[in-house]
Design a binder for these strands. Structure first.
Length: 265
DNA sequence: ATGGTAGGTTGCCTA
């Protein structure tokens, strides 16, 4: 099959999730996997067991919190760590590289709660910095894939109980507006492009209260595609199987499939 | 009305 798959998964600690991650990689073999919340410094990242499965990996790590990585079966080039626009920002939330003919980024957007704190202001600034950088990426030739945990519920149908989320940073109008600003640039939400009528399709379920068993979730992990990338979109699937496993992350993978580019003579 | 869960770090913060 001449297809290329790109997945995103917030693993909530790569150390705690390594066995589940390796199992999933073996079973699914995506070309590219974008990871968030690896929660380790780059030196502690488990490159070796991942390499044994055929994956290169680049990491922007941080002790205890955040941390993003890109795994690829193809060479990874021109790696960028961190989003421009705020020199004093030390949080490891953005890594970008060229692989498989695509410019791909793994994004861990700030959560932003509580709304009346500087954490929310940081989230909104971060969204604006992402918008500015995403606009620049559209000027380059490579198709762009921006995947990760956006910590934004785009619409009411993307959560089980909109009223329960009304005052949360993940659903505040400012957050949703910041997410829509990326779409206004010309990016497409791959899951929504492929499933325009679907509601109650989630990528995250809280650990508490049996949320997964009750299917009380939210859709906050997204893969955004530039126009040349969405032209090649074949499918976008949420794989909820890993969320039901023992020692699961509270997020589950989203997998996008693209046609391979036409071979140019 | 409260606490419920998980991960990391360290005696509490983040999600």
């Amino acid at each position: 099959m001449s297809e290329l798959s790109i997945a995103t998964w917030n693993v909530n600690s790569i150390k705690a999730r390594l066995a589940n991650l390796l199992d999933w990689l073996r079973d699914n073999r995506p070309d590219v996997l974008l990871l968030q919340e690896v929660k380790c410094v780059a030196e502690a990242f488990p490159h070796e067991p991942i390499a044994e499965l055929g994956y290169h990996s680049v990491v922007f790590g941080q002790k205890s919190y955040n941390g993003v990585a890109i795994l690829s079966r193809h060479p990874l080039k021109e790696v960028r760590r961190g989003l421009p626009g705020e020199a004093e920002d030390r949080q490891a939330r953005y890594i970008e590289a060229t692989t498989a003919g695509l410019r791909v980024a793994s994004i861990y957007l700030p959560n932003g709660n509580p709304v009346d704190s500087d954490k929310f202001a940081y989230k909104i600034r971060w969204l604006e910095r992402l918008r500015a950088h995403a606009a620049r990426l559209l000027e380059d030739d490579d198709p762009v894939v921006l995947g990760g945990d956006y910590n934004v519920i785009p619409e009411e149908r993307d959560c089980w109980d909109p009223a329960a989320w009304a005052e949360d940073a993940l659903f505040r109008p400012e957050s949703r507006r910041g997410f829509r600003a990326l779409l206004y640039l010309g990016y497409y939400d791959a899951f929504r492009a492929r499933h325009p009528e679907t509601g109650n399709a989630y990528t995250y379920w809280d650990y508490q209260g049996g949320a997964f068993q009750l299917d009380r979730g939210i859709r906050i992990d997204h893969i955004l595609l530039s126009p040349p990338a969405v032209d090649r979109l074949v499918d976008a699937v949420i794989d909820s199987e890993p969320r039901g496993r023992p020692k699961a992350s509270d997020h589950t993978p989203l997998v996008v499939t693209l046609e391979r580019p036409p071979v140019t003579p």
